[in-house]
Design a protein around this nucleic acid. Structure first.
Lengths: 262, 262
DNA sequence: CGAATACTTGAGTGGGGTCAACGCAAGTGG
DNA sequence: CCACTTGCGTTGACCCCACTCAAGTATTCG
């Protein structure tokens, strides 16, 4: 699935990135795809975005991309794979704060605030593109609508974070997991990485636990429950939603907070 | 305490708002105070900010200021009192997502995204200033550094939200409440509303529960525990931290995520 | 001063955690 | 090609943190 989608993206006429950087084909393509429906961006804006300097970097599953306390000088664009942000409490427990699919910018916070207050890690093998802050700032000065687009990204990110907060505070384990699965499928669809209601789901049960505030053991039991109820098929790293209305009901899922274009 | 602080603020030379609006003295003063330490704002920027049109509105405790699903055309600046954002699940449980003190802008999301994905309510009697979106947008076009300041606000808001997520997912009830109290005192200090380590705390135990993902009954027991341990004195609507290191330890509180100026 | 609201306390319960094994598949090195 | 390792998923037994229900006591406010 992933490969097919990428092939389609790469087949589009892509403005090449700055010479000397980004020898791989158009790492900014997923971002431009994501911003296709963002209102107010002119063709010139999109051209400038596509010309941003990006240095592509392979990341290994489980490895950190940035750490709490760092002062980074570049933003991280997910090109391939799944990336997450997380924090570890003094007592050693990890809370995953967000997942990020190809086309999403993970680090925008660093552009305006000082030290990172959380870490960033790759959940799977993948590729990220690193974009220097100064290039982004320069672009923002040239093209004010790009600021809106970036700001918008941080607002949507915050909205998703709030939805997670609601889940952790007020939903049962079953509803939390169901909600998380719904969100993941919808966002995969939006990123062009799904086929109908199924997609790659390269997230272990431990990681699911760290995202949903549950133990890996309980995540396992809840997943069996959801499978048993005929709502999902989840095996290996592939997720298929068998009963979408049922799963959405179980997770109290309403996609409004994702602010996706119609 | 509140009255004293306000008196100090009002005593500063304040550029009057647009004539005809804001008959009360300088509702934008708390915002300018909050942004005193924001880097990059010129005197001209501050002048333009101070000249924003604001319509002051009294709000009653517990009443909604904006509702999920609304498409507002103005942003809400807290002038006096405490405001919160919240969501209610289909099963009727409420999750409070954030608290907002005077000087904070609550609604910036509406500037770039469509319908609100959560509601806004006043926790206490107070005053809010409503600023039309078009005025803010106009200001942003005139003064690019103001965009940075606003964007920065949403980033800090998101950082606070993430910290709450960590608490809900991975901290015990005791640590959650202790952390929340720490955060409230520090933010009150930053807003000039605290005296040393004590401040007004006009939040009921039910509301504390809705913010921390606990039942009001359990909040009560945890508060008694914290009182019994000699960490805080909390009665009526006044909070005094008696043992700051102890409370911070109990709540695993590290203020880095608030991104306050030194 | 009466009525609502907030706080407090107790008893009983359950959702989810912890601990400890075990199965299974995918490396990995000899 | 096989022994060893490592990580993930699965299962069972037990337990405790926090919830619910229910009643009673302070406060606050009109």
């Amino acid at each position: 699935v992933v490969e097919t989608a990428n092939a389609i993206q790469m087949a589009r006429p892509a403005r090449p990135a700055e010479p000397g950087r980004a020898s791989h084909p158009a790492p900014l393509q997923p971002l431009l795809r994501r911003w296709e429906a963002v209102p107010g961006l002119s063709e010139r804006d999109r051209g400038l975005i596509g010309a941003l300097p990006v240095s592509l970097r392979e990341v290994r599953a489980g490895h950190d991309i940035g750490r709490e306390g760092d002062r980074s000088s570049q933003c991280c664009l997910v090109v391939k794979g799944v990336v997450c942000r997380y924090r570890v409490t003094p007592s050693g427990k990890r809370q995953i704060l967000s997942f990020h699919l190809p086309g999403e910018l993970v680090d925008l916070q660093g552009l305006l605030l000082g030290a990172m207050d959380h870490s960033v890690a790759a959940l799977t093998r993948g590729e990220v593109g690193l974009i220097p802050h100064h290039a982004l700032r320069h672009l923002c000065a040239e093209a004010p609508r790009v600021v809106d687009a970036l700001w918008r990204e941080t607002l949507i990110d915050a909205a998703i974070g709030r939805e997670w907060t609601v889940g952790l505070g007020r939903r049962t384990a079953r509803a939390r997991i169901a909600h998380l699965l719904c969100e993941f499928v919808i966002r995969s669809q939006a990123a062009g990485l799904a086929e109908g209601r199924s997609c790659e789901f390269p997230i272990s049960q431990s990681e699911l636990g760290d995202a949903s505030g549950l133990s890996n053991v309980h995540v396992n039991r809840v997943l069996q429950d959801l499978r048993g109820a005929g709502l999902v098929a989840l095996s290996g790293s592939h997720l298929a939603v068998l009963d979408w209305p049922g799963l959405a009901r179980a997770g109290e899922f309403d996609p409004a907070y994702l602010h996706l274009p119609e």
